[in-house]
Nucleic acid binder design. Structure first.
Lengths: 147, 147
DNA sequence: TCCTTGTTGCAACGCAATCGCAACTTGTAG
DNA sequence: CTACAAGTTGCGATTGCGTTGCAACAAGGA
């Protein structure tokens, strides 16, 4: 399952990158793999450190440049979980948004039917064309709220 | 009307600041006034430049320090209209969110009944306590979409 | 294998925001 | 009205995320 998704994600990325006349490099492969298998939403530095475990010469500049490419290709989404810096995740088909617990820091994902409703509402009632929605929540997660 | 609101806003700010054991200074008064009467959402530098027209010695550090205080007191809201830096507005009672046109840069405000619904939904169905909602939209405004 | 051209690593840089500290104000107590 | 303790300011230096110029390098088509 993971193996299968992995194949698919790497393929998707490779195709998109090659289709844009860019090259499929060792570094990009490494970074893609780290992003995909990360079990939390990494920031650039976390990604950098994990990638360096496999390729110690890989530079932080390359991390940022690669993230830029992947963002533009729609392969990763940039999250605003903290004020200080960005986090990233492999983009998926189902829209969702993030909830950060102010007490324990846990990140919960919620599906975004509400956001879709909002988008259509604005489009219909105000004539605007919504291109991107950025919804970030913070508060107490269920566990911390109960304690 | 503007005069009356002005009085109220300044009063509110002064009280809040004094209540926290802080001092009501010339600089804070200037900045509050600029924020209140700004007709667009200023960034720190814009605020700095406008404030300097009245008090040329006022420093950028003071702008940031004051914004920090006002944020903590809930007197101004920090907006994420651009990736590069923050914008600020005097906080108001009615919740609303911002829509930035990617073509002309115009900022439109929409009221946020949807957001309130979402908040309650999450609270009820997932047991989380929502403390802050940050909803930012981008796309084509009605004018640009029609063109 | 060669060659063109995109990519990388490195170090320097850009820029929003923050901080340390001495000089200065505020506001209250006397 | 005055003195004084404590909060605030301006300034310059600094932090930290992210970007960029450039020479060396590597991908991949011919």
């Amino acid at each position: 399952m993971t193996q299968q998704d992995s194949q698919t994600f790497q393929d998707r990325a490779r195709s998109a990158i090659r289709a844009a006349g860019m090259r499929w490099t060792k570094q990009r492969e490494t970074l893609l793999d780290v992003i995909e298998h990360a079990r939390e939403h990494l920031d650039a530095d976390g990604l950098y450190r994990l990638a360096r475990e496999r390729d110690p010469r890989l530079s932080l500049a390359t991390v940022y440049r690669t993230l830029g490419v992947l963002k533009r290709q729609g392969l990763v989404d940039e999250l605003h979980l903290s004020e200080e810096h960005h986090h990233y995740e492999a983009s998926s088909d189902d829209q969702h948004f993030h909830f950060v617990c102010t007490s324990c820091g846990a990140v919960t994902e919620f599906s975004a039917s509400t956001v879709d409703r909002l988008r259509k509402e604005l489009q219909r009632e105000h004539g605007v064309v919504v291109q991107s929605v950025d919804l970030d929540l913070a508060g107490l997660c269920a566990k911390c709220a109960a304690a």
